[in-house]
Design a protein around this nucleic acid. Structure first.
Length: 357
DNA sequence: TAGGCCATCTGGTCCT
DNA sequence: AGGACCAGATGGCCTA
């Protein structure tokens, strides 16, 4: 079979090679420039009839007389007689009218492409709004948005399969798989903040650690795992000190100033800046100076389908009541403006029930 | 200044 | 012909 193939093809190859050698001898200096010319010629000859035929058809259909003249002009152009004539459609000279039409087409195509990309971007914006950690002011990049959305879907699917809520660490790990360091820090920080607020609200007494009703199965050692450990872990509060916490690469969570919560006003939080939490490899990122905490980056976790029927679970910045009580920093919009999506489809309720008791 | 991210332009390809 | 889609190139902006 193979030998038969060779026997059939070999003569042609040899003939082509011989022709090529002849050509090269004639145009020796030109051959030095493009060694692969024979191959390209072959490919061109193979490809052009297919693509060129439609082009020729369309041009024949749409063009006027001046183009026919141009075509005739082109027949006698620089094509030297020593070169084998190319088969297939001839390249037609671009007259001024054709150039103009081509430009117009290009302009229109550019406008369409722009519109298309804008549509794509607005779709991405919509996606940003339904994944955890949405911010109007500091958007996730496109690629990170897609990665986070994928992880979010996988995580929710996992929860559905298992029929139980994960602990916060597992959940964060699921969400952050494959994300960049800044995004990982951001998501982790958001989730921990949410949990911590929940803890703070639910247990104002000393028994903060045992939270059977918490949205995650949080226990006092959850934050002490090797990947989430932080020197700023607050043993007394069961939470990381995340106030004015930056998450590297410009990502930063800004929390309301002290006073909205007993924990925030505690001296323990004054002047302490936590390093970003790193799930992928310990602590990383950079410490932000306090001046940088003035930037308007507002992050929080939102769970699609949160409803006001469970007010105690919608506590992004602190205990319920403080949110509507004007206790925000003035830079922080009302939570529901940024994070909540009450118009989400009801089925999400069930999913979120895992996280919201 | 390098690197990341982004918007835009552009040519190619496929489809109607 | 023309539109949609795609990928490469390019330049601007921002941040570390």
């Amino acid at each position: 079979m193979l030998s038969r193939l060779f026997s059939e093809v070999l003569p042609d190859v040899q003939r082509l090679a011989a022709d090529w050698v002849e050509d090269n001898e004639v145009e020796d200096d030109k051959a030095k420039e493009d060694d692969h010319e024979p191959c390209h010629l072959e490919e061109d000859e193979l490809d052009e009839p297919q693509e060129g035929s439609s082009r020729a058809e369309s041009e024949m259909a749409g063009d006027d007389d001046e183009d026919e003249e141009a075509e005739e002009e082109e027949c006698g152009d620089e094509n030297s007689e020593d070169k084998p004539k190319k088969r297939g459609p001839k390249k037609r000279k671009m007259t001024a009218a054709r150039v103009e039409r081509s430009k117009m087409r290009r302009v229109k195509a550019n406008a369409r492409e722009r519109m298309r990309m804008h549509d794509l971007n607005s779709a991405l914006d919509n996606l940003r709004k339904v994944v955890p950690c949405y911010s109007k002011t500091q958007k996730l990049s496109k690629i990170e948005t897609l990665r986070l959305a994928k992880n979010y879907i996988l995580a929710l699917g996992e929860i559905l399969r298992n029929g139980k809520r994960p602990d916060v660490v597992t959940y964060v790990q699921m969400l952050c798989k494959g994300l960049s360091q800044p995004t990982t820090n951001l998501v982790a920080g958001c989730l921990q903040l949410n949990t911590r607020n929940f803890l703070t609200e639910q247990c104002s007494d000393g028994a903060r650690f045992h939270m059977p009703s918490s949205p995650f199965s949080v226990h006092p050692y959850s934050y002490r795992c090797s990947r989430l450990s932080s020197p700023h872990y607050q043993p007394g509060t069961g939470a990381l000190n995340l106030r004015s916490h930056s998450y590297g690469s410009g990502y930063e969570a800004v929390y309301p100033p002290g006073g909205t919560s007993p924990d925030y006003s505690s001296p323990d939080y004054e002047g302490q800046h936590s390093p970003p939490v790193c799930l992928n490899g310990g602590l990383s990122g950079r410490q932000q100076e306090s001046s940088e905490t003035d930037r308007n980056y507002h992050y929080s976790v939102h769970y699609s389908g949160l409803t006001t029927s469970r007010p105690s679970h919608s506590i992004p910045f602190g205990p319920s009541g403080t949110r509507s009580g004007g206790a925000h920093s003035e830079n922080i919009p009302p939570f529901h403006d940024v994070h909540l999506h009450h118009d989400r489809a009801p089925p999400y309720e069930d999913l979120n029930a895992f996280f919201h008791n």
